Every structure is written in C-alpha cells, then in structure tokens.
Amino acid sequence: MRIDDTDRRILRQLMAEPELSTADLAARAGVTAATCWRRLEKLRDRGILKGQQAVLDWRALGYEVEVSLRLTLDKTQPRAFEEFIAAARLVPEVIEIQTFLGQVDLRLNLVARDMAHYQEVYRDRILALPHIADIEALMHVTSIKASEALPL
C-alpha cells in the first residue's frame, strides 16, 4: 500500500511521540488538525495504522528475568502447531509467540520475577506444553535496539 509524504510525516511524528494529541500531531506534521484526523482514519481503514497501545515496563512491575525459548515441534502430529500455540497462549508469563520456517519452529519470549520463578514456569508450564521435540533457552542479557518504528 502506497502512502504519500504527508502520511509519512504524520506517521514519523506519531512513532516518535504516540501520546501526542491530534492537534499537536498535526502541527508537528505541518497539516491542519482536520487533515491529520482524516489521514489517520484512512491509515486505520487501510490497515496501516493498527492502533495505539500502552507499553508497560515489565521490569518496573517486578519481572527481572527474560528468556527466549527456541522450540522444535514433533511435526509427525498433524495439529502440533495449533495445539502447542493454543496451550502456550494460556501461560501468562509468555509475552510473545513467533513461528518460523527452518530448523526452529517457534520462539517464545517469557518473563519471570526471578530465576526461581523462571525455573517453576519452565518445569511446570513450558515442559508441559504439547508436541515439543527440542527446546533451547537463551537468557536475555540486554537490549541493544528494540523499536517498532519504520524508516518512513
């Protein structure tokens, strides 16, 4: 889907400061508030702008451990992916589920309060998930770059 320079200016400003009011966003993008509102509605209607969300700092809420689990499933089971994903969605500590093509089938990101909590989640919830053939845990140390912004 093509967007023009005005849409790009609006989206750049919105990505930089998503909490801006429509009037402030319009001023920064160099358009009127009415134009900005109409453009935002069109971007939503076209599925380019999917909405806004609150971003929580899970560390500030007491979660100190982040682990990325790379999983390979037993693909001899016809519904392995569907059943695994349905079960993984029920684990509250799992904050992201991604599927891949290749040697690794899925990646789960999960958070825990501390290592004891992680071990409990891993043993009691993760290892109980269906159809796991192989699993590798990668302990998160630091984020170098984490951004949803696009080069518009």
Rank of each mutant, 00 (worst) to 15 (best):
D4C: 03
D5Y: 07
D5W: 08
T6P: 06
R9D: 13
R9N: 11
L11I: 09
Q13L: 14
L14A: 13
L14K: 08
M15E: 15
A16N: 13
A16F: 08
L20V: 01
R28Q: 10
A29E: 04
G30R: 02
T32M: 03
A33E: 02
C36R: 01
K42V: 00
L43I: 05
L43F: 05
R44W: 01
D45E: 10
G47S: 11
G47T: 10
I48K: 04
K50I: 14
K50T: 15
Q53Y: 11
A54G: 06
V55I: 05
A60K: 14
G62I: 00
Y63R: 03
V67M: 10
S68K: 13
L69T: 03
K75D: 11
T76F: 03
P78E: 04
A80M: 00
A80N: 00
F81T: 00
F81A: 02
E82L: 09
E83A: 02
A86D: 02
A86Y: 00
V91H: 04
P92A: 11
E96G: 05
Q98E: 15
Q98G: 09
L101M: 11
G102T: 09
G102Q: 06
V104F: 01
D105F: 04
D105G: 08
D105R: 09
D105N: 10
R107M: 15
N109F: 08
N109D: 13
D114A: 11
A116D: 14
Q119S: 15
Q119V: 11
E120K: 14
V121G: 02
R123V: 13
R123M: 11
D124I: 13
D124G: 14
A128D: 14
A128Q: 12
A133D: 14
D134V: 01
D134K: 07
D134E: 11
I135Q: 05
A137L: 07
L138W: 09
M139G: 07
S143F: 09
K145F: 11
A146W: 07
A146K: 12
A146S: 13
S147K: 06
E148S: 13
A149V: 07
